[in-house]
């Protein structure tokens, strides 16, 4: 409202029509032209969001109620795709694997993130340099990182396998992509390398908001280092930790690139994630309706995760 009043004075009540009439008119046109301009500058962004986001979301819900091949006849089948999803062994296995991956990845990233953040907490140039080094892999894309690690762990020619062989921990002919546990392990190692730096950075800024006096007081009172961490740092870090938890849960639930690139879903389709399964259904099998139904289920799960995130953020705002 404030910006309307500055343009012109309010028309007085003095009853001199000729003077206030013009400002009144000017004020009105200015304020309507302002809001018209507002709608205008916002519209390009909104058009893009509508065409490439809101429309797809609505279309997804409609598609999910139909048998929808890429070419050929579309037929309405109600909730058929959804009931099929719960009987689709491949989908259930993919969902189960995604959950397992999330359960492995999330605590691992949190623990490593906290450890790194505590390590680089020391003031001085050296610790800033180490922080930059740990963060460096974050800017590398998943595809580039995936192909890099794929090579590092290749049997016979992989440099990482070679180093471990020289150290007596492996053998050149080991095929880590040949068994489920080692294939998953190498993917997890790559993701830790690529993502831990970001967790460290966010935790570091959380740590910086904890006043040093608090810790000093506790130390003077005789608290041990572990007690300080357990009873002072950890509780004050809770909002940051919760946020990171949500980030890594959402990120892990959406995993695709790393498995497509490094394991191709193998061995024996054991590392196919939910998004990977949707990819295969929609873009290799061209069952777009069924793919849309699976996407809708995924969207619901992610919306719940996001809702939890918002709840956490709101609670931390009140603190």
């Amino acid at each position: 409202m404030a910006h309307n009043t500055i343009v012109t004075a309010r028309p007085g009540k003095s009853g001199r029509p000729s003077v206030p009439m013009r400002p009144l008119k000017r004020r009105r046109t200015l304020s309507t032209s302002r809001s018209r301009l507002g709608a205008m500058v916002v519209s390009p962004a909104l058009i893009l969001l509508t065409v490439f986001f809101f429309l797809p979301v609505v279309l997804m819900l409609w598609m999910s109620l139909n048998r929808w091949p890429l070419l050929g006849k579309i037929s309405f089948i109600g909730l058929g795709n959804y009931s099929a999803a719960f009987q689709d062994q491949d989908f259930l296995r993919a969902a189960g694997f995604t959950l397992l991956y999330t359960l492995i990845m999330t605590p691992m990233l949190l623990v490593i993130g906290v450890a790194l953040a505590l390590l680089i907490r020391r003031p001085g140039k050296a610790s800033r340099v180490f922080q930059s080094i740990y963060f460096l892999p974050v800017v590398v894309g998943f595809a580039a990182a995936g192909y890099l690690w794929l090579f590092m762990a290749q049997p016979n020619i992989g440099p990482m396998l070679d180093l471990l062989t020289r150290a007596g921990l492996a053998s050149h002919s080991d095929n880590w992509f040949g068994t489920f546990a080692t294939a998953l392990g190498i993917v997890c190692a790559m993701v830790v390398w690529k993502v831990a730096g970001m967790q460290m950075l966010l935790l570091n800024s959380g740590l910086q908001s904890i006043p040093v006096e608090l810790e000093e007081a506790a130390r003077i009172d005789g608290a041990t280092r572990t007690q300080v961490f357990r009873y002072i740092i950890l509780p004050l870090l809770r909002p940051t930790l919760a946020l990171l938890l949500v980030f890594s849960v959402a990120g892990s639930l959406l995993a695709f690139d790393q498995f497509y690139i490094m394991t191709s879903g193998g061995p024996a389709n054991q590392t196919i994630t939910a998004v990977y399964h949707i990819y295969r259904v929609s873009f290799q099998g061209f069952q777009l309706g069924y793919g849309a139904a699976l996407s809708a289920l995924l969207m619901i799960v992610l919306a719940i995760v996001s809702a939890v995130q918002m709840l956490i953020l709101r609670n931390s705002d009140h603190n």
Partner: peptide, 16 residues
């Protein structure tokens, strides 16, 4: 729109 990542809408997005 933050709440829904594009991986979740890729099938209809492809169709659009």
């Amino acid at each position: 729109t933050f709440m829904i990542p594009f991986q979740a809408v890729i099938t209809p997005l492809y169709l659009v």
